[in-house]
Nucleic acid binder design. Structure first.
Lengths: 231, 231
DNA sequence: CGTTGATATATCGGATTGATATATCGTGTC
DNA sequence: GACACGATATATCAATCCGATATATCAACG
């Protein structure tokens, strides 16, 4: 769960520990809210196993791509600051503090793909796990991607059955518990509708071999599809 | 989180370990899906601290402590074995297997109320924690109950703000991540609406000092209130 | 009569969190 | 210009919890 998030982020760009956590938290919210207490051991683990390579970022470190990506909140702002402070700008930006930048290896990419395509956990944090995988679903083969969506749908169907059994059998619930169960059931139904629309879009996209290979817009905004499939 | 669930269940009836897990899982689903690996240590912990009392359920077991709680697990197990081998099947047919029935103490009730009224965690399983507390909310004073609902609402408002910030700033998301963020945002809004209806019902109930002290029906079935408060 | 599945308790390793410690740097403030 | 404060950055720790596993009994079924 944790290695998946780290490797997924590092598969796009190199980062140091603090920023890995920051990015995952800011971009994926509760789906990848990892703590330092698990991040740093995980990075050490991944480095030992050869999935990532950590490099000390000392002032004379001009590695590959500095920060070519988009927003890069912390990095660009830090670079801006140090540049304005005067000293830097000649070599690279003023490394404000010792940090260790992690880069993914080919082994790491293989591990990432295995984790992403591997078995999803069932139980407590299945929702977190699915959200995390969906956030990296673009790295999956279309076939595996559809499988991910459908397995999650099955999971939710089973959960809905359990919810409804609870609501039906447990008539001795007090009003708060009853409201909780009702609300949970509705939320699960909503999740299923959402997945239905995702699956439909995915099938359409795979059926039509358009060269529109970029992120097709039909997936994200399909509120009409959601309404249409409503239970 | 775990002690709260156990004590909450035991505050209504006495149960043995296996059934504690079964009940919590069947009635509260994901909100209290505790495993044996945490249940039995928790029960031992609670027994040591005097919050619960465990009694061996053998056919002729007077309520006084049969085995004077030597903490040593092996010792108790040995005693159990010998007892079962010796006085097996004298009378009462029902006892299918040796089990340890746990009963809550006055201390345990105090601990339970403290846990229930205490600080909610923020972070990963705040939803679980809230659901669990809501399931036992009838044990709270009306004042504290309203506070629980409002604190949860504030939490969700903050989460919604974070979700919307994500959706606004992160335009470089791929379609899957974008859909995930959108869906999460909608779910959070739905949760807030639900809490609004709960809070409204609660305030109404507290404003009207009806002697209708039983679980008022207006909370659980308030789908009209939900619709009315929809965003 | 044997095998399966539910009941029942217990332990272990591993993953993860939250808290805490340490240190540097930028910024606002008085 | 002193100085606190918050953000950056890495690291470690105890505590918690889960999933898997082991062991054992018993009912039901063919």
């Amino acid at each position: 769960m944790l290695d998946l998030a780290i490797l997924g982020l590092l598969s796009e760009h190199e980062f140091h520990g603090y920023e890995i956590r920051k990015r995952l938290r800011d971009e994926l919210g509760l789906f990848a809210n990892i703590s330092f207490g698990s991040l740093y051991p995980a990075l050490s683990r991944l480095e030992l196993s050869g999935a990532v390579i950590g490099t000390e970022s000392s002032p004379a470190a001009p590695p590959a791509a500095p920060i070519p990506l988009t927003g890069s909140l912390g990095g660009e702002r830090a670079a801006l600051r140090s540049r304005r402070a005067g000293a830097a700008r000649s070599t690279t930006r003023g490394t404000k503090r010792s940090r260790k930048v992690y880069r993914i290896t080919d082994t790491g990419r293989r591990v990432f793909e295995e984790l992403l395509a591997g078995e999803e956990p069932v139980g407590t944090d299945e929702a977190r796990s699915f959200g995390l995988r969906l956030a990296f679903a673009r790295h999956l083969a279309p076939q595996a991607r559809l499988g991910l969506l459908e397995r999650r749908r099955d999971q939710l169907i089973r959960r809905l059955a359990a919810d409804q059994a609870r609501a039906a059998a447990g008539n001795d619930f007090d009003s708060y518990t009853r409201s909780l169960v009702e609300h949970t059931t509705e939320a699960t139904q909503h999740d299923i509708s959402w997945l239905d629309s995702l699956i439909e879009s995915e099938k359409l996209k795979q059926a039509a071999p358009r060269t529109d290979s970029r992120t097709s817009r039909t997936v994200g905004t399909g509120s009409a599809a959601v309404k249409g499939t409503e239970l």
